[in-house]
């Protein structure tokens, strides 16, 4: 356990030393919040609560894809990574440290979105709703974490950046996270339930508003979680086999 904390501490330290990398992670969801949600739905408590849920899910997804996808891939390219494997701790603390660091960065991306929602919109929920909302975000983060790890363990870093960007866009739009609630084009309404972003955001809506999630979205979220999980394990094992067998 102390090894995990050591790894978290130094990974956070490494990240904080390059603030620009963190700003990218924080900027997108906050900017979307400022440009799309505040002017269009800020006065309507219902709409802005939904939109805040969308932006929080958006922040979680992009944070997972980039910190895990690109981060893992870059680490794998460095000889520092195998060196750490020769220390008397094994690969677990580094892996666990990476997950915890990713969660911390996710928290950093979520915080400004929440602040903007509270200060600049009429978005509202109960304290219990807020707590459940975070629990829902956490559950929804699982398939995106797997997706990030899949990208990170199976691709070289330049390809990982491109794939993370390419994946993140259709997932955000196709899941209906970017379009203002109520004015989502019909074709997106049709495909959204089959994307993990939709199931994830519906969980958040259900936690924070009176929304009743669609069965299809939740079933598909579970399917995505299992499938991305299986592929992430496959990619991790393949990488282990190539570099350390």
């Amino acid at each position: 356990m102390s090894h995990v904390l050591t790894h978290v501490k130094y990974q956070l330290l490494e990240t904080i030393r390059v603030p620009v990398a963190m700003i990218g992670n924080i900027f997108f969801p906050s900017a979307s919040m400022l440009f799309f949600v505040v002017p269009f739905a800020g006065d309507d408590p219902g709409a802005s609560t939904y939109a805040t849920g969308s932006m929080m899910t958006f922040a979680v997804m992009s944070s997972c894809l980039f910190t895990y996808g690109v981060g893992v891939s870059e680490d794998r390219a460095q000889p520092w990574d195998p060196y750490l494997r020769t220390l008397p701790a094994g690969p677990v603390p580094r892996f666990a440290g990476r997950l915890v660091t990713g969660l911390a960065l996710m928290g950093l991306a979520l915080l400004p979105v929440l602040l903007i929602a509270v200060l600049l919109t009429e978005a509202t929920t109960t304290p219990l709703g807020l707590l459940l909302g975070f629990a829902a975000l956490f559950a929804g983060a699982v398939p995106f974490t797997f997706l990030g790890l899949l990208i990170g363990y199976s691709l070289p870093s330049k390809a990982a950046i491109a794939v993370a960007q390419i994946t993140f866009f259709p997932l955000a739009f196709g899941g209906g996270l970017i379009t203002p609630p109520g004015s989502t084009p019909a074709f997106i309404e049709a495909i959204a339930p089959y994307l993990p972003t939709r199931g994830a955001v519906e969980l958040v809506w259900a936690a924070t508003t009176g929304f009743t999630p669609q069965v299809t979205s939740l079933v598909m979220l579970a399917v995505w979680t299992v499938v991305t999980g299986a592929f992430a394990v496959w990619a991790y094992r393949r990488d282990e086999g190539r570099r350390f067998a």
């Binding site: 130094y10 330290l13 490494e14 030393r17 390059v18 460095q78 000889p79 520092w80 990574d81 060196y83 020769t86």
Partner: peptide, 13 residues
């Protein structure tokens, strides 16, 4: 004890 390759030392630490 083992030596890492110097090219990979974490540059921000």
């Amino acid at each position: 004890g083992m030596t890492p390759q110097d090219t990979g030392l974490p540059s921000t630490l």
